[in-house]
Simulated scan of single mutants.
Amino acid sequence: MEAGMFIFQFFYYQFRPQDKSRLWYLLLLALLLFYNITGGLFPDDKITLISIPTQMMIAYGSGFLMASYFPFYFYKAFDLKALRWHALYGVPFFLMAPYLLFFVIVYAINGNLNIKLGVVIPFIYSLVLLWVILKAIRNHYKEDKNHKNAIEEIAVYCAVSPWTAMTVFSWFQVSQLVEVLCTNFGFITITIIFILKAIRNTRQEYEAFIAIKTNGNIQEGFSAENFLTYGLTKREIEIVGFIHRGSKNKVIADSLNISEGTVKKHIENIFNKTGATSRVELLHKLYFK
């Protein structure tokens, strides 16, 4: 099921490479596939091409990789800048470094896999990550008056929290069935959220198309097809109209009854989708060609 979902999302991404959130989701799927395959196959003494110690390193490594990706996923997919340090520096130091030390180096030297010692620091840090991510989401929730993105972030947060229990599972040596059910339940939740988001975005694109074609919300000279090609939402199209009139962020925020932070976020999303680096370049990309 996960492989089928990955293939479908991969080809869909090829049609809309500007949708970076789908790219981060693809990486999430790839890591989950790697985790489930290696966790299901290893260790197995019938697999003679790979030694048992190496199989153990790979199996535990896939779990550490999966858990390490979540802060980066929140940082990139939801633009939670407060997580930048943890995504780029904290995770390598407090999650991957203990794995390399205890599950690779020490294990390779003396053949003794001390799981309990190896998961102490990652477990403590995973609790820190849960608090930091929750705090970042809460702050974003306060900034986003519509609360749509923040609610989605909270839902994803609840979905990935079971991965914090990975270190607890390792400590108490729980069965693989319990471990897989717990962690994959989070994935299923994320998938449902992602599908609902895709449906919502498609509806927004249709509403935007109707607004462009019938209501004349966009000034003459713009291409409706360009808006749809770049996947701009109705709100983003409204903001483009304000940009075209030379409005400042505060004017846009007051007119749409949203915060300046939300306006900046919308403009950043518009730049990411279109590949523009300035307002002038953005308007040029959206004109008829």
Rank of each mutant, 00 (worst) to 15 (best):
M66P: 08
F93H: 07
M56E: 10
L49G: 13
K81S: 14
L83H: 00
I105C: 03
F70L: 06
K46V: 09
F78C: 06
N139A: 15
A97E: 04
F102M: 05
Y73T: 07
S126K: 11
K135N: 13
K81V: 10
N110F: 00
R84K: 15
E152A: 12
V120F: 14
N139V: 14
L80E: 07
T48K: 15
L41I: 00
I137T: 01
H86W: 12
Y141A: 03
L130S: 07
S62D: 03
R138H: 09
P71E: 05
I105G: 08
A87T: 01
K76D: 06
L83R: 04
T38M: 05
I105K: 06
G61D: 07
Y141M: 01
F42G: 02
L101A: 15
G90F: 10
L113W: 04
Y89G: 12
L129Y: 07
V106K: 11
L113H: 10
M96I: 15
N110A: 07
K76R: 04
V106R: 11
W131L: 13
L113G: 08
N139E: 15
K116Q: 14
I109L: 13
L65Y: 05
R138Q: 11
V120G: 12
M66K: 04
N114A: 13
H86F: 10
I47D: 02
I50D: 01
I115A: 07
L41Y: 05
K135W: 12
F103R: 00
W131H: 12
K145D: 12
W131S: 11
Y89N: 10
M96W: 12
